[in-house]
Structure formats: structure tokens, C-alpha cells
Design a binder for these strands. Structure first.
Length: 261
DNA sequence: ATGGCAAGCTAAGCTTGA
């Protein structure tokens, strides 16, 4: 089974690239982030014609997540509230950043973690609060779902080897101690970075800035991840980053990451 | 040190992204 995470930076702009990628990579599940479209305008039919069931949670202009699955999914829901309750979640489900469902006995959680703007900003505080809610959410679902795959755009560089210039970027959002600590608190619940099961060295990234020829100079960040529960991590056979879509004209700034088990 | 590119919204320039 192959599960892919890909921040497409607008599904309507990237529709043809995603179709062509799926035609050459007929994966079981594709998790998308930054779809940037309300549900009624989401281009579902081209993907349904490829055989995928589509599950979407979008909003106008910003954010938005979707899961495409060859087999129908069960227990699909979006946002924190179905697990944590409205009172605890408050306004944190207004931004569409979480969708989940179960297929082949695997629970898939597709995330678009807030960017955080800059360290110390209001959006940064929002990101840390969002990560706290995520931790509480996962604490509940991991007990019910032995086979859990949490994937998406985390907007966090886990370690210095996951970025081209850790010193030069050390004050950037995505690298702060609080963000990395929040991620580690989540992983302590019993999750493994699938990519690092197979690849130890640095120099592997999933996002490159559009500006300053980031991709050509390989000035990248590894911020798109699959985190697997222990039973699932033991079944994993590979986790690779496919850089080829990033080389196309008018690409997303992120590229797909594929885990197989 | 700063901004650089791209997308959406909406009709020129702002907001967001990481």
C-alpha cells in the first residue's frame, strides 16, 4: 500500500499535474494540502474518473485538505471537534487543516499544520496552540487505531539535517525550539518518522522556495512527513521523495513524498 | 539586511506562504 502526501498549492492550478502524476504513480491514497478551494468548486470528477474516491475539506482562498483513495474510506471526518469536542476546539476548526479516514485497516490523518508567519507573532502562537490540540487529538486516536499514518505538511523542520542551511535559517519559523519540541511531544505518543527509517543523511527536502532559485540551488526544507504508529512502521518498506513534479513548469513549491508498507 | 516568486481575490494591490 502506498500513501502519498503532497502540498499542491492550489488544486485548481495544479489539477493537470496531479492527474498526470497519478497516471504514472497509481498510488492507493493521495493526501493533499493547500487545495485553496471551497468544496462545491473542488474539481472532483477528473480524479473520480481515475478511480479515486474523493474526500475534501476546503475553504475560500486558503488552506484546505483532501484525501483521494482507490478504495472507499470509512469513518471520514474533518477538523478536531469530532474527537476533541466543540468546547475544547473553539474557533480552531474554521481553518480547514485536518481530514481523516480509514482504509484497509489503516487510519490516515492528513494535516496542513499552520505556517506560523514569524517566531513570536500572533500566527506563531496560533501554530503552537494548534499543535497542542493535535497532540490531544492523536493521544485519543492512537489507542483506537493501531495502524495509524499521520502525514501532511507539518511546516516544521525536525532536525538540522533536514534543511540546507540550519545556521542561516535558525531564526526562521519552522525551526524554533518550541515548534520542534511540540513535534517531539507528539512523536512521543508512539510515532516514527518513516523517511528516517530508510535515509539517514541530510540533503533531502520536500519544499523549495520559489524565490532566489531555491530548487535549482537545492536550498530546501524537509517539512512534509509521514509519521507511523509502531505496528505500521514495522511494515514499512520504503519512503521516498519524488522531486520530479518540482521540476515542471509552474510547479507547487512542495513535492510528493511516498511511503509504502 | 532585504527581497526575491506564486496564488487567490478582484480588478491594482494586498495577503499569505515558509
Amino acid at each position: 500500500m502506498k500513501i502519498v502526501t503532497w502540498n499542491v498549492n492550489s488544486i485548481r492550478t495544479r489539477q493537470q499535474q496531479v492527474i498526470e502524476w497519478l497516471q504514472t504513480n497509481p498510488v492507493d491514497v493521495l493526501c493533499l494540502q493547500e487545495t485553496k478551494v471551497i468544496d462545491q468548486d473542488f474539481p472532483r470528477s477528473p480524479f473520480e474518473e481515475l478511480g479515486y474516491h474523493t474526500y475534501i475539506s476546503g475553504q475560500k482562498s486558503y488552506n484546505g485538505v483532501a484525501i483521494f483513495s482507490l478504495s472507499p474510506m470509512q469513518d471520514v471526518s474533518s477538523g478536531f471537534a469530532p474527537i476533541l469536542g466543540e468546547d475544547k476546539v473553539g474557533d480552531f476548526d474554521i481553518q480547514k487543516r485536518l481530514i481523516t479516514g480509514v482504509v484497509n485497516d489503516v487510519c490516515i490523518l492528513n494535516l496542513y499544520v499552520p505556517n506560523g508567519a514569524s517566531v513570536g507573532s500572533e500566527k506563531y502562537d496560533y501554530k503552537l496552540h494548534w499543535l497542542k490540540l493535535l497532540q490531544e487529538y492523536i493521544k485519543i486516536v492512537i489507542d483506537k487505531s493501531p495502524n495509524l499514518c499521520i502525514c501532511g505538511d507539518f511546516n516544521i523542520v525536525p532536525e538540522d539535517r533536514d534543511i540546507h542551511d540550519p545556521e542561516g535559517c535558525k531564526n526562521s519559523v519552522g525551526l524554533s525550539d518550541a515548534e520542534r519540541q511540540a513535534l517531539q511531544e507528539i512523536l512521543k505518543l508512539g510515532l516514527v518518522d518513516a523517511f528516517r527509517q530508510f535515509t539517514r543523511e541530510g540533503g533531502h527536502y520536500s519544499w523549495w522556495d520559489y524565490r532566489a532559485a531555491g530548487f535549482r540551488r537545492n536550498r530546501g526544507w524537509r517539512i512534509d512527513h509521514h509519521y507511523l504508529s509502531l505496528p505500521l512502521s514495522q511494515k514499512a518498506t520504503s519512503c521516498i521523495i519524488d522531486k520530479s513534479p518540482r521540476q515542471l513548469p509552474k510547479p507547487s513549491d512542495h513535492t510528493p513524498v511516498i511511503v509504502e508498507f
